[in-house]
C-alpha cells in the first residue's frame, strides 16, 4: 500500500456527475470528497465538516463490516428525520455524498447514482 499518497487529484468532470445527481427528484444536494476527508471544489465550513465526518464514518463502518466478516462496504445510507444521506465510493480515491428529502425515492436515487458513478468511471 502506498501510504504516502496524497488524495489531491481532482476527478475531471466531477461537476457533471453532481449536476446529473442533483437533477434527480428528491435530491437536495451532493458533494464529492477525497478519502482524505477534504471536499473537492468549493471548500467552506459546511462542506468541510460533511466531508471529514463522512470519510470518518466510512472508515468506522468499514471496520465494523471487517470485524464481523460481513463483506465489502458498497454504500452507506444514514436516515434522519430530515431525510437521508447516501455515501458511495466514487473512483478509487473519492466518495460522493448525497443529501435527500425525507420522502425521496431512494431506490431511484440509488440506481441513478450507480449509473452516474459507472459512467464517470468508464469515461475517465
Amino acid at each position: 500500500m502506498d501510504h504516502a499518497r496524497r488524495v489531491n487529484i481532482i476527478p475531471q468532470n466531477f461537476e457533471n456527475v453532481l449536476l446529473t445527481i442533483n437533477r434527480i427528484k428528491g435530491v437536495k444536494d451532493s458533494l464529492v470528497a477525497g478519502l482524505d476527508g477534504i471536499p473537492i471544489g468549493k471548500i467552506d465550513r459546511e462542506s468541510s465538516v460533511l466531508s471529514a465526518s463522512t470519510v470518518a464514518a466510512l472508515g468506522a463502518v468499514r471496520e465494523l463490516t471487517k470485524t464481523v466478516s460481513y463483506g465489502d462496504l458498497e454504500q452507506l445510507i444514514v436516515e434522519t428525520d430530515y431525510g437521508k444521506i447516501i455515501i458511495e465510493e466514487f473512483g478509487t480515491e473519492h466518495v460522493i455524498i448525497i443529501l435527500t428529502e425525507i420522502n425521496a425515492n431512494i431506490g431511484m436515487i440509488r440506481v441513478m447514482l450507480k449509473k452516474a458513478v459507472r459512467d464517470f468511471t468508464n469515461n475517465k
Partner: peptide, 26 residues
C-alpha cells in the same frame, strides 16, 4: 495555506480511526 487540522482519538480502543484520518495527510 488553508490547514485542515485533525486530531485523532488517543484511546487504543479507537485506533482503527488512525488509518482513516492519516489518509492523504501532508
Amino acid at each position: 495555506y488553508l490547514i485542515h487540522l485533525f486530531a485523532s482519538p488517543g484511546h487504543r480502543r479507537f485506533s482503527f480511526m488512525w488509518e482513516t484520518l492519516a489518509t492523504g495527510m501532508d
